[in-house]
Simulated assay, not measured.
Amino acid sequence: MTPGERPRTLRRIAPALGLFLLSPLVAEYLLGNVPSSEIWGLVILAPMYGGGAIIIREVARRAGRGWPTIILLGCAYGVLEAALIDQTLFNPAPLFEGDVSRDSTLIPALGFSAVNAVGFTAGHAIWSIGVPIALAEILVPRRATTPWLGVPGLIVTCVVFVLGSLVLFGGIHDDSGFMASPPQRAGAAAVVALLVVAAFLVGRRSRPVRGGRSRKPWLVGVAAFVASAAFVARPEDWWGTAAGIALIAVMAVVISRWSRGDGWGAAHRLALAGGALLTQACIGFLLLLLHGTATAANLIGQVILVLGALALFLVARRTVRGTSGAGGTAEVG
């Protein structure tokens, strides 16, 4: 590769590199699940989180698919991580001291908590996959729905994802000594496969834009924040499980209808991502307190992360405003 080709290559893959880091930063650090003092953990987390997000985005866009496919693949990723890689879904150990979420909705025959199953699956689909991909695509409007990597780059990403997942799996297993049973792992693998199949069955036919103007972006953002905040704040019992499923179903229908309105575009997708991002920023401080990691250094680091998320949102908002025809057409398939 000549010196002149290197900058062109870097520019071409820059969105993928950004997504590689953005996914774990939003999913774990902004959430407060991993404190900023352990920022070195990106070396371990990025191959699995970022690699997974890139693979999902590239596969969906190469297949000409839109957000329904991306979100369902995100659900598959959520089950893969929580049930097969870190196996948190099946591990009887509490997530943190005093956590009783598993016991409150435990399904003994299956060995996992219903509230955790809903939370892990939807949480990864939204914050590990959906929000980072939406932000990354909005920042490169001309390439928002086109592949960012060639076939060799995608193969390398798959290798990095597998190796990163194996490293994380090995480290967690060595620390906890826990291993899900063969039937649990087989059942989880079957669910992952079903979600992947479903991801490519939905949206096979493009739906026409319905009449009427789309909702204002600020209203979409408020709805996203309220719904995502209600989702994470729901009770960790059977009522909370039912409420979480109902919220997901209602928002799926609402967003599907809104996205087919005349004028739906990047500004609305940014509003959805921004509302969910704000929820993540708010609960990050709470999780630091619950995990006992709310030291002065970590709180300062959390403030820096929140400010960074705000800066990224403002840059994306400026990009949307500076792009001609930002409203665009509905992307629903």
Rank of each mutant, 00 (worst) to 15 (best):
residue 111 G to S: 07
residue 279 T to N: 13
residue 148 W to D: 02
residue 196 V to S: 03
residue 130 G to K: 06
residue 94 P to R: 10
residue 322 G to W: 12
residue 174 D to T: 06
residue 224 A to L: 11
residue 26 V to M: 01
residue 251 M to D: 05
residue 109 A to N: 05
residue 216 K to P: 04
residue 316 A to M: 13
residue 331 E to N: 01
residue 32 G to I: 14
residue 176 S to E: 09
residue 270 L to T: 13
residue 243 A to F: 11
residue 105 T to Y: 14
residue 195 L to D: 04
residue 129 I to S: 11
residue 162 V to S: 00
residue 14 A to T: 01
residue 211 G to P: 05
residue 202 V to R: 15
residue 133 I to W: 10
residue 299 L to W: 08
residue 108 P to I: 12
residue 188 A to G: 02
residue 175 D to Q: 12
residue 190 A to W: 12
residue 238 W to L: 13
residue 255 I to T: 13
residue 141 P to F: 15
residue 54 I to P: 01
residue 166 L to C: 05
residue 193 A to K: 05
residue 259 S to N: 12
residue 214 S to H: 11
residue 3 P to C: 10
residue 284 G to D: 11
residue 160 V to E: 04
residue 202 V to A: 09
residue 275 G to C: 11
residue 201 L to P: 00
residue 278 L to C: 11
residue 83 A to H: 09
residue 126 I to R: 04
residue 98 G to F: 07
residue 153 G to A: 06
residue 58 E to I: 03
residue 280 Q to V: 14
residue 169 F to I: 03
residue 109 A to P: 02
residue 3 P to Y: 09
residue 292 G to T: 02
residue 56 I to P: 07
residue 263 G to N: 14
residue 124 H to K: 14
residue 74 G to W: 06
residue 195 L to I: 08
residue 249 A to R: 04
residue 125 A to S: 14
residue 143 R to I: 01
residue 228 S to Y: 04
residue 83 A to K: 12
residue 125 A to T: 07
residue 7 P to M: 13
residue 192 V to T: 09
residue 27 A to F: 02
residue 199 A to V: 04
residue 91 N to R: 12
residue 252 A to S: 14
residue 223 A to V: 13
residue 307 L to T: 02
residue 155 I to W: 08
residue 10 L to S: 08
residue 199 A to D: 06
residue 163 L to V: 15
residue 152 P to K: 13
residue 274 G to K: 08
residue 33 N to V: 10
residue 13 I to W: 04
residue 220 V to Y: 11
residue 233 A to P: 01
residue 261 G to M: 13
residue 92 P to K: 07
residue 97 E to C: 00
residue 302 Q to G: 02
residue 80 L to G: 00
residue 251 M to I: 12
residue 183 P to K: 10
residue 2 T to C: 12
residue 236 E to Q: 14
residue 84 L to Y: 05
residue 180 A to D: 06
residue 276 A to R: 04
residue 265 G to N: 13
residue 199 A to S: 07
residue 40 W to A: 03
residue 79 V to S: 01
residue 130 G to W: 09
residue 105 T to G: 02
residue 55 I to W: 05
residue 2 T to I: 02
residue 23 S to H: 00
